[in-house]
Design a protein around this nucleic acid. Structure first.
Length: 123
RNA sequence: AGUGCGGGUUGGCUUAUCGCGGCUGAGCAAUCAGAUGAGGAAAGUCCGGGCAGCACAGAGCACUCUACUUCCUAACGGGAAGGCGGACGACUGGCGACGGUCGUUCGACAGCCAGGGCAACAGAAAAUAUACCGCCAGAUUUUUUAAUGGCGAAUGAGUGACUGAUAGAAUGAGUGAAUACCGUCCGGUAAACCUGUUUUGGGCCAGCUAUUCACUCAUUCUAUCAGUCACUCAUUCACUCAUUAAGUUCUGGUAAGGGCGAACCGGUGGGGUAAGAGCCCACCGCCCAGUGGGUGACCAGUGGGGCACGGUAACCCUUAGAGGCUGAAAGACCAAAUAAGCGUCGGAUGUGGGGCUGCUCGUCCCCGUUUUGGAGCCAUCCAAAUGCCGACGCGGGUAGGUCGAAGGAGGUGGUUGGUGACGACCAUCCUAGAUAAAUGAUAAGCCAUGCUGACCGGCAAUUUUUGUCGGUUGGCAGGACAGAACCCGGCUUAUAGACUCGUAUUGGAC
RNA sequence: UGCCCGAUCGUCUAAGGGUAGGACGACAGAUUUUGGUUCUGUUUGUGGAGGUUCGAAUCCUUCUCGGGCAA
């Protein structure tokens, strides 16, 4: 499988984002796994087939510097890109995923990758 | 040489794998290939401009901002050069107040003799003033003190000293007398005794010694009396004086000095004065008016005034200048969908409406006073309708794409003008462009640097050894501040290491 | 991204450039058998730096932090 990360895998629709972050929505599943809180919507027939679209958020409240936020976002994205092949084996993967970074400090790429693997397996 | 502080320049390199953004090429497409992809601050959003839409005949007020001068610039609250002022250091002139030169550094650096306001506490007084202490002059002394000068008398008492008289005592001197032995006394005697001569005499005489008595004189002491002087006390009478100084009180002068304060009605030196004072003089400062130099800020110098005109404008304000408002989520275009619908209610349909933003103005400008029917020549009137505006309710939908937007007040190099900021000309280059937002992850090596070990060499103290410097090499660690979002010019703030400049300090050598 | 406000005791909130005040709280004392109530007293503060001024919470600049608006 290709380890690419194209535009179609990035969640840009404001509508979907609003649905994903709306409180109390029945379609949204959520769980917490260090260092993420993961929100996702399962795959339905209406949504387009293919790989899920993801969004990564790093809170500005904990990381004041844009440089730090960029670094964490890039590391998370790399971890997802290198490990998303776990979804390819079975077709029952979510359609939209949101990764909320909740750790209070910058952690290394190895830790992020370990957390990402566990999160993908749980989904 | 090291370290600290401040300013400036710079702001690690290479490779591999897997990825990302837009671009170019190939391909129907999937996809593949290629080159390319953060900064000096991209940050803060503190100024200015480009660009865009909206509005616009004009004027004034209001509001906001700027503020030494000249220049640079598209513009600026930015920059350059200059002026002036402050601080510090060095040298230096003057009695002094106060200056001069050089260096470093800082300055929101227009105007409080246009006006208004403000100044706590302290202080006598805080702005056309005043007089607390003080200084000086005069008066006052009812009352106080000191000094100097003037100025007394009488009586009494006490004490002391001196003089005189008298008396007594003691001592001394002189004169005279008596006594010495015996004796109970009256009285008697000259033996003894002494001396001399010579054998007889003389004498108890004189002298000497002792004692006693009397008299005289001298000295001393004591007592009494008298007189004189001094002191003290008491009483009575008289003067309760003059001058000076201090003090009290009053009147006036003064602002030199003290004291208060952040600041108090110019400063220094001299003259002058009862004491003082721009009261007078010289200088310093200030104000006014000419002169010369400079584009100008300003500078130099002349004459006059005669000391008010204190501070504060990052208080109001004045003067001069600038500013229309809103910001790329501006705005333009394309596509799709829906709508430009429906209902109810209200308003106006006219000497009116509009002319940006907050207000005002009208001698200015623009627009408008519709249609139908009726009355009527027109103006005008009546009725209806359309249309307009507003409110409420119902109904329906979007949050996509392209441009704006990456060739520009652009970079580099050269020549050239200018003290400089900067400009002109020529050559050459194209160098991120996303839109929930790319520039990353992993691995390896090199390099600056730090720690540590080994070897070699130099230097210092020395036997090994220690310290330090340099080189080679091994291991470990390891690169700050920070991420474009329409663009640009500035400002501000952050910044490891390296280089460099200034400055302070420490150590070493000469 | 663009724009606008604000920061004062532990908390809330005042203060014309001139001693930073009040309420609640905390602490101590009094009253009460004790606690509560009540009374009295004390404590504690102008976000950081620089400037203007004789003097700054206040005025100016800058930094930091917090909040809000525009979809």
């Amino acid at each position: 499988m290709q380890q690419t990360f194209t535009k179609s895998e990035r969640l840009c629709s404001k509508k979907v984002l609003g649905e994903l972050f709306k409180k109390g929505s029945a379609a949204v599943r959520t769980f917490y796994l260090f260092p993420f809180r993961v929100l996702y919507i399962p795959h339905t027939e209406a949504s387009s087939s293919g790989l899920p679209a993801i969004v990564i958020t790093v809170p500005k409240r904990t990381f004041k510097r844009a440089v730090d936020r960029n670094l964490i976002r890039r590391r998370v994205r790399e971890a997802y890109r290198l490990n998303k092949s776990a979804f390819h084996s079975d077709s029952s993967h979510p359609a939209y995923i949101a990764f909320l970074y909740t750790a209070k400090q910058i952690i290394s790429f190895e830790e992020i990758e370990k957390g990402m693997k566990l999160a993908l397996k749980k989904m």
